[in-house]
Computed example of a mutant assay.
Amino acid sequence: MGNIFDEEKLYPYEGPIKKHFEEHFDRVFIAFLPFFQLDRAETDKSNLKKAKLLSNEEALKKIDFLKSLPEANRDIYNYDNERYPDNKVIFTEGKAIPWKNIVNGSTLTCYAELNTALRTSIGGLNRNFTRPDLMEKLNNYTDRETIYHPTEGTFGILSKMAIHSAFKLLEKNQIMITDEFYENTSIVDLDRLTEYEFCDEIGGKDYYLYSADKEILFTIEWDSFFFLIATDHKKMDQLIASHLFEGFLCNENTDHYWEYNVEI
């Protein structure tokens, strides 16, 4: 196996995740993007999600080229929900709600069902695999409790805060930030940034965060509600003991589509 950093293969899209990283890291953790609440009243339940499923009429108003296409049974999602809280609000007011609480409160049976419900809610699954029944259970609970959903395919502000704490815990201060297509890489010094400044350095399409010595990597991909943490067993033990992240360790068979082959 080649060097995943040099070959720009930092996310394992196919095959067992641990095997993908085995030349560099011996532990990989699947970390969930947290839900959250704000200390404020929210009456419009459509604002609890960044993504919104548009009606045909709404889609035609927002997307001109659809008018020239033949009618079809298609789902169109819009991510311009201006009333979804911005990063500064979440940073100052947000309280992370773990997936465990969502599963226990929503009558979903496991994390795999919750992940499927989330992916269904954004049109991220082939129609043969969608589970509107699970999505309804999820939405009923989060609407009732005024819980905001995470946004897929990006390190949310709460996750960035946890990642900042993790780098500090492991005494890693020189951090590399690389975008989705490996076109731009910047290096930041945590000693020179506040926590929020560090979070603000990471853009929506920055998918690879790692220490300059390449001893720990955080990576996400565009359609997921989770990200990966890869490091050695000693550092992973420290991170798990810190309770900064919710999720589970990959076993020898865990792959990107873990919800289909694990019962957790």
Rank of each mutant, 00 (worst) to 15 (best):
E201G: 05
N140K: 14
G94K: 05
E197Q: 15
G123Q: 05
A212W: 02
I97T: 09
T185H: 00
P12A: 08
G94D: 05
S224E: 11
L53Y: 07
I17G: 08
K52P: 01
N140S: 14
Y141C: 00
I264S: 03
K172V: 03
F245V: 04
E180V: 11
E145H: 06
L114Q: 01
D80Y: 06
D26Y: 07
G2W: 05
Y13A: 06
I97L: 01
K49T: 10
N47M: 06
G247K: 09
Y148G: 00
R27M: 08
I30A: 00
G204D: 11
K19E: 15
G153L: 07
L239A: 04
K9Y: 02
T107Q: 07
R127T: 13
H233C: 09
S159Q: 10
M236E: 11
R83P: 00
D39C: 07
L10S: 07
N173V: 11
T116C: 07
I240Y: 03
S106C: 12
L33A: 07
C110T: 06
L60W: 07
D213N: 07
K234C: 07
E23A: 09
R119C: 10
I220T: 13
T254W: 03
K172M: 04
L69S: 04
Y260F: 12
L53D: 09
G124V: 01
W99V: 12
R144C: 09
R127A: 12
E82C: 04
D206K: 11
I90A: 07
Y79G: 02
N73Y: 11
S121A: 14
I229A: 11
N173L: 13
N87M: 09
T92Q: 09
K95F: 04
T154W: 00
E259G: 00
P98A: 13
L244C: 02
E22H: 13
V89F: 06
A241H: 12
D6Q: 10
F226V: 10
A41E: 15
N101E: 15
D44V: 12
Y208T: 08
T231F: 12
L193Y: 12
N104H: 09
G94H: 08
E58H: 10
K61Y: 14
S186T: 15
K61M: 15
Y182G: 06
Q174S: 11
A31R: 05
I187A: 10
K214C: 01
D232S: 10
N81Y: 02
E22T: 08
K88C: 02
L48D: 02
K62A: 08
S121W: 01
C199S: 15
Q238K: 15
H24S: 10
S224D: 07
G156C: 13
W222V: 11
M1W: 05
N81E: 01
N78Y: 15
L170G: 02
P70E: 01
